[in-house]
Nucleic acid binder design. Sequence first.
DNA 1: CGAAAAATTGACACCAGTCAACGATTGTGG
DNA 2: CCACAATCGTTGACTGGTGTCAATTTTTCG
Lengths: 259, 259
Amino acid sequence: MTIRNDEMEQQSAQAFSCREDRLPEIRARSFDSPAGTAAIPNLLSADHQSLLKGIATLVEWGNGKGAVFTEGEDASFIYTVASGMVRISRHTESGRRQVLNFVLPGGVFGFPENGIYANSAKPVGDVVLYRLPWNRLTELLQREPQLQSTFMTRLVFDLQRAQSHLLVLGQQNVSQRIASFLLDLMQHEDFYNAGANVLLLPVSRFDLADYLGTAPETVARALARLESDKILVRLSSRQISIPQPQRLSALLQVRRRNH
Amino acid sequence: MTIRNDEMEQQSAQAFSCREDRLPEIRARSFDSPAGTAAIPNLLSADHQSLLKGIATLVEWGNGKGAVFTEGEDASFIYTVASGMVRISRHTESGRRQVLNFVLPGGVFGFPENGIYANSAKPVGDVVLYRLPWNRLTELLQREPQLQSTFMTRLVFDLQRAQSHLLVLGQQNVSQRIASFLLDLMQHEDFYNAGANVLLLPVSRFDLADYLGTAPETVARALARLESDKILVRLSSRQISIPQPQRLSALLQVRRRNH
DNA sequence: CGAAAAATTGACACCAGTCAACGATTGTGG
DNA sequence: CCACAATCGTTGACTGGTGTCAATTTTTCG
């Protein structure tokens, strides 16, 4: 019997306090170290950046190893992504995993619920994060209403995205869910080469399936069907060509749940 | 052919600027009118309450008639619920409706996305709301970091709830979704009589189905099955008895998606 | 090059969506 | 107060989409 990585994650998540295999190659650096020259992205003014730098620690994670934190842990830090991608997920009582979000540079994650993390956060590939102590951040936000406003804007944005995700999971069939995901990815130049119409998928089929609330097999079949319908071409498992993007969005117009 | 209320809503929502049948019996009152004596709930200090009262208008809606606002409209106001319940929903491109939330007293809704409402808000039964002008609120929050912090806490809370909802829609079968909803409702004393083990359902089957990402017929069948399995008793369509709540939560432990 | 993981394809059962018809409930006007 | 209509809720019949298990192919990585 083969067990995929994330099955084991589920077991540890059910235990809810398992800290094994975490923080393997974490290298905390001072914010003023050479690697700390990267700016905190996402609409932060120079003033706000320096304010955040005062309380932030730059941390890096190796190639997808270990977790930033796991659901159920005590929460002391908020994180913001400098580079790379972080997968946010949560498990049901039955052990199933739902991927809630893929956080891109500029994104914030790790807000505590009653002092503990409700979700798990894991790097997808190499990642650089800024780690902000929650108590010091709240103090700072009290003194800097403008900065707090930026965080609030970010939260409203994340809430809207979660709600869009709810529409995908609640009202779309698997083909439409994939179409929604691809169209979403195409908004990011990091993944979409508009000239060549080539899209890079940064996540595995397992992560994608758990993000879309389905099974990896179903994702594969839906992609195969989309290819036979000439809507896309699978160049490789992580690389697809989308000759006519409007045909993808046309899928979302269909009223019926089946087909 | 019979058309249910919300089918027509879908059509107007697809038009995205239809304002007909809105604001039918809205009665705006000064905050200092007799009806304005009710306190703004939810962890607001007396200071903050009076600050909000300075910019708030008390508005009431009759028995479920009309909408507070519709997706696509220009957004000028934030709302907070004083009494009653508000249903937040959004439509897919194909016209399907997803109910995102049922906002209870103390809840906030109506955050704008690029100046427009991304969702629709409609009263469920009689409702009293506080209407806060967005531009005046942002000014106020700049001057009152503590108040802004309260709003941020509320947003984090709403985000966590949306994420829990994502787990329900993405990973649970219909019986489990209903169990999750019922267990959620049982947390509120307004709806659950723990002594008699009787739960009041404040929403219709249509709203419930759209909230759970399924069809009303499927909800009815799942409830019938739960009753035949002795997990609950339907006293009436809006009233059910739950003799052993732990049997409901036991449903959530099952790993399989089917049955 | 070999082992492990990932991705795909096949087979099959079943949950759930859809259409339809039938009760139950609510509201309204005479 | 009752007849009537409209809406809501439930049940039936049927089909298709999708979850699960299994096997095979492809890719990754040591």
